[in-house]
Design a protein around this nucleic acid. Structure first.
Length: 629
DNA sequence: TCCGAAAACTTTTTT
DNA sequence: AGTTTTCGGA
């Protein structure tokens, strides 16, 4: 492992970094706030910065980099990108995890240091309170006049111990006490939610300053991804750990994509960060995702969200003919659905895009739209992939099945067995199996044996695939073979989320059912894999779900829909959700608006026309009918 | 079974 | 905020 001088460093795996990104990579004397709007290359920037710190020895052993993301797969992707850029030796000191995983790791190590009565039991259980639970709790304890939503927020923000609290309404103190009591009721088995784990982490850090000192000594550099979505509890933890210390923080995000306030995110995370920490600001000015015509419209919308928005430089070349953006007007719902379906079918047949590269976005209730579109899609020979759907009989959404650890391992093995070559899957599986089976990656004897065993199972499975056509039964059988090889006990022992049988079974059964569904009517295992992965299907998802993704073409259903009004009317969260939807498109984006659905023209419709987007009659399946106004 | 009123629900993630 | 589901009384 060679350490290079800072002057000799240059970006790896990419041609260049834009000046702002380069400055933000090399500035490690200040905390940084990096504004990265859609398509700016956030992950790449963080990976380059990690490489800079690790390969120049600015972060040398035993020091490590802590990277915090919100979603587990975002954390995984960042880790993977860093490994690609600077190799496994350096990237082993890059700890990429979710906020919750970070807090939980602290409780797992320091739980016994938490003062009574808040010391959790060693085998504490993690619970996920639902929408209903908050009101039920209040009613059960005789506080029907208090609001469940406020209660949830109070739990997420209360500082421990509750005995020291002095809320304006003393009832909250009583309720919070009852709530924490109930979590510790069974002395041997504490039940904690992630907001509670966050509160406990904060508490133990205040009671024992050595812990904060140890963490600061381990992590002189901290990356914060999607910083606009930080919650109050998470921000409090960051402040407690890193404010007025030598730790250098790099917060990356975009206020214009802040669409999680309703779920407890701070409305002003960046502002608070700038106020509480000494911060230098950089703005990434490239847009690698969208072509110039789309970036122009994006910018017009961006300035209505934030006056000071800088205009990004479009780096993608336009590769389509015809309209790249329009509002499609329809008189009624049926014509709308049929027209859009026809348009998609024509565009796919003309080879303009692959089905999986054309997304249908909706503000809410994707399941309702799926029910409406499915029959029409079937007639047109198209297949819809609603990722928010639960496979028949399963208790888990497709979108969650796809990112499960079990799925990632099993599918890699299945791909290896069905395809002639799949080196990425091979390396990935070797890594995961090493971890699952507790093998040392540096022990050649162990690694050789692992390679042999993997070759063995792959040739067994190849035989099976050759002899057995896909069916629900053969899927179950091959799944069982693969799980026997990987080891269900090892999976459950290594993946914390699989500790409870119920949670493991949900993931396994969900996978089994989706695989069986993908096998329906197929004669070829490769097409089963493609169907499982969504290849050849038009994805349908909510705007919130699409955050962070990109597609060749975006079709956005229901610009006029009543669901576009915020739960809090004067909030611009809805407008930002619209911006997120718009900025997913690489080549083109269309919106549908339908009079039959309620007819109200939303302010978003107005916003779009102000940005210079044409309102036209939508494409129709029945060209003889008179066009909508 | 029907009616009007009230309550539930909408966008998500987390081991 | 608007839509859908549930509930209670006839």
């Amino acid at each position: 492992m060679v350490i290079i001088r800072t002057n000799d460093w240059s970006p790896k795996g990419v041609d260049t970094l834009e000046p702002a990104a380069l400055r933000a990579v090399q500035n490690n004397d200040e905390n940084l706030c990096v504004v990265a709007s859609a398509g700016a290359g956030k992950t790449e920037f963080l990976a380059q910065k990690a490489d800079y710190l690790l390969s120049t020895g600015l972060c040398r052993p035993p020091h490590r980099i802590l990277a915090i993301s919100f979603k587990a797969d975002a954390a995984r992707n960042l880790k993977e990108r860093v490994r690609e850029r600077c190799g496994p030796q350096f990237s082993s000191r890059f700890d990429s995890m979710t906020f919750d995983a970070f807090s939980k790791s602290l409780i797992d190590r320091f739980g016994p240091l938490i003062p009574a009565p808040y010391t959790p039991s060693a085998d504490y259980e993690i619970v996920f309170p639902g929408y209903r639970d908050w009101n039920d709790f209040l009613r059960k304890h005789g506080y029907p006049q208090l609001s469940g939503v406020t209660f949830q927020a109070a739990v997420a923000r209360c500082s421990l111990p509750i005995a020291n609290l002095n809320p304006e309404n003393p009832q909250w103190k009583e309720v919070l006490n009852l709530y924490w009591d109930e979590a510790y009721q069974d002395r041997g088995h504490t039940r904690l939610s992630f907001p509670m784990i966050n509160r406990l982490t904060n508490y133990v850090l205040t009671t024992d300053p050595r812990l904060s000192a140890a963490l600061r000594a381990t992590y002189p550099f901290v990356f914060l991804d999607e910083f606009q979505d930080t919650t109050y509890g998470q921000y409090a933890l960051l402040k407690r750990l890193f404010q007025k210390t030598d730790v250098r923080m790099t917060a990356v995000g975009d206020n214009k994509q802040r669409i999680m306030v309703w779920a407890g995110a701070m409305p002003n995370a960046f502002e608070s960060f700038e106020k509480d920490f000494d911060v230098a600001e950089e703005t990434l000015l490239s847009n690698w995702r969208s072509h110039p015509e789309l970036v122009d419209i994006q910018h017009a919308i961006a300035v209505t969200l934030e006056k000071s928005s800088a205009k990004p430089e479009a780096k993608r070349i336009k590769s389509v003919d015809g309209d790249v953006c329009a509002v499609w007007h329809y008189a009624d719902r049926e014509v709308e659905c049929e027209g859009v379906t026809r348009w998609i079918a024509d565009a796919i047949n003309a080879g303009e895009m692959a089905p999986e590269d054309c997304v249908i976005l909706i503000r809410n209730k994707p399941n309702d739209l799926e029910a409406e579109l499915n029959p029409i899609f079937e007639n047109a020979g198209l297949r819809l992939r609603n990722v928010a759907r639960t496979p028949e009989g399963a208790k888990i959404l497709i979108q969650d099945i796809l990112t499960e650890e079990l799925t990632v391992c099993v599918m890699a093995l299945l791909r290896l067995s069905a395809r002639s070559k799949s080196p990425d899957d091979w390396h990935m599986l070797i890594d995961r199996l090493s971890a699952l089976w507790g093998l040392n990656p540096d022990n050649e004897v162990e690694q050789d044996r692992l390679q042999d065993e993997l070759s063995g199972i792959v040739s067994d499975l190849r035989q099976f695939i050759k002899k057995t056509p896909p069916s629900a039964n053969s899927c179950n059988e091959i799944l069982q073979r693969m799980l026997n090889f990987i080891g269900e006990a090892e999976l459950r022992a290594t993946v914390p989320a699989y500790t409870r049988a119920m949670d493991y079974n949900r993931a396994r059964d969900g996978f089994r059912l989706l695989l069986a569904e993908s096998a329906e009517g197929q004669t070829d295992w490769l097409s089963v894999i493609d169907r499982f992965d969504g290849v050849g299907q038009i994805p349908l998802m909510s705007v919130h779900r699409s955050k962070g993704l990109e597609f060749h073409t975006v079709i956005f259903f229901g610009l006029d829909s009543g669901s576009w009004w915020s739960f809090k009317p004067d909030d611009s969260e809805e407008m930002r959700a619209f911006f997120v939807a718009f900025t997913r498109a690489k080549q083109r984006v269309f919106f549908t608006s339908c009079r039959g659905r309620g007819g109200r023209i939303s302010y978003i419709d107005e916003l779009v026309s102000n940005a210079g987007v044409a309102r036209v009659a939508g494409p129709r399946a029945d060209t003889l009918a008179s066009p909508a106004e």
